[in-house]
Design a protein around this nucleic acid. Structure first.
Lengths: 188, 188
DNA sequence: TCAAAAGTGTTTATAATACACCCATGG
DNA sequence: CCATGGGTGTATTATAAACACTTTTGA
C-alpha cells in the first residue's frame, strides 16, 4: 500500500510518500498511521498497479490541510528528482486527479483550513492547479455552486493596509460532486 | 479480481459480472479471458475493496461494444435482484463512472460499433445515461469537440422511409479527456 | 490622502440546450 | 403527396472569464 499525500504549504504543492504493510484490514487507519498525520482531510483510492519490483500495490491519494509546520518529509510535488519511476507516475496521477476534481467537486475543503479569506483560498488553488486563478471568479463559481459559505467576522488587514477580508468556510467537509454533467445533462 | 462489464444491447444497459483468480500477472488478459469477450473495447480500474466475505478484490470496469448476440450471462444493469450487496455496489459504481465519463471524455467509442448513424449513437447514450438525449445536441457536442468524424456513405432507410442517415465514427479508439476543466480553467 | 487589498457591477465569451424548419426517401 | 426519419439554422440559456470600478483600511 502506498500513500501519496498532497498538501499546499506556503504557496507550494507538496507531496509525502509513504508505504505501509500489506495488512489491509483497516486501510484508512493504516494510512493515517503511516503518514503520521492525525487528520487527513480526505482519502480516496488512486490506482492499483504492478510495481517495477514485481509487487502489487494499491495507491491512495490523501489530502492534508495547509499547516504551519515545516515537516522535512514533505517535498515539492512538481519535482521528480531522485524518485523511482513508479513514484513519479503515482505523484503525477495524484496531481492530475486533484486538478480535475478541484474543477467539478468541493474537494478544496481538504486542502484549506476551516476558515479562510478568499485570498488565502486563491493561493491554495493556484498552487494545486499550477496556473493563475482570479479571486473574483473563484468566489463567484464556488458561491454559485453553494460550495462556500460566508462566516461571521472579518480578517483585519496587516501593517500594509487594505480592506478587511471576509471569512468563508466550505459548506461540507465531505467530497461532493458539484458539476456532474459537463455536457449531456438531463433535459429539464 | 472482479470484472464489471457494461454494454448496451437493444436499448438497454446490460452488465456481466465475472471474477478471476488472484494471479495478477496479466490483469487485462485475465479479465478478457474471464468474461469471454474477445475484445473489450475499454478497461479501467474501478476500485479495490474489502468484500463482505473478507477477501480483497480489485474491480475493473470493462466496456463492450453493442452486439447482436443474446448472451444469457448478461443482465439488466439497473436491476439489483438477486445480487450480493458487494455486487450491487460495484455495478452502481460502474454505472456512475460511465455516466460521468460519457460527459467529459470520448468513452462512447467503447460502447458504439465502429460505424454508426447518429440515431444509433443516440440510443446508446440514452441507455447508458438513463435519460433522454437529443440527437441534434449529441451531434453538435461531439463534433465540436472533435470526438466524432463523418465517414463516407449513407445508411439507406428501412421500409418505413425517411432520409438516409449519415455515417460517423469515433476519431479515436482510446480514452481521451475532452473537457478537462469544467471550471477554473487556465487563463489565456 | 494615497497605496494596498478586498469586493462588486457589468460586459463578454463560450458552449450547450431548445426549437423551428427544411431535406430525402418509401409507399 | 404525405408520413417518417434525418439534418440544419438560429435563438435562448447557462456559466464562467475578463475587466472596470468602488470600498475600506494603514500609514
Amino acid at each position: 500500500m502506498i500513500a501519496v499525500v498532497l498538501r499546499v504549504h506556503e504557496g507550494r504543492l507538496e507531496v509525502l510518500l509513504a508505504s505501509a504493510s500489506r495488512d489491509e484490514d483497516a486501510l484508512e487507519t493504516a494510512l493515517a498511521r503511516a503518514v503520521d498525520v492525525a487528520s487527513l482531510a480526505h482519502v480516496e483510492q488512486l490506482e492499483t498497479r504492478v510495481l517495477e519490483s514485481g509487487g502489487l500495490a494499491t495507491a491512495y491519494l490523501g489530502l492534508a490541510r495547509a499547516r504551519g509546520d515545516h515537516g522535512t518529509a514533505w517535498s515539492d510535488a512538481r519535482q521528480g528528482e531522485g524518485r523511482a519511476r513508479d513514484e513519479v507516475e503515482l505523484v503525477a496521477a495524484a496531481q492530475a486527479r486533484l486538478r480535475a476534481k478541484l474543477s467539478y467537486t468541493n474537494v478544496g475543503f481538504a486542502l484549506a483550513p476551516l476558515r479562510f479569506t478568499l485570498s488565502e483560498l486563491r493561493e491554495i488553488y493556484v498552487a494545486a492547479l499550477g496556473h493563475d486563478v482570479s479571486a473574483t471568479n473563484l468566489q463567484r463559481v464556488l458561491l454559485r455552486r453553494g460550495v462556500l459559505e460566508r462566516v461571521e467576522g472579518l480578517r483585519s488587514p496587516g501593517r500594509t493596509g487594505g480592506r478587511p477580508a471576509a471569512l468563508f468556510r466550505f459548506a461540507a467537509q465531505r467530497l461532493e460532486v458539484t458539476d456532474e454533467f459537463a455536457a449531456l445533462r438531463p433535459p429539464r
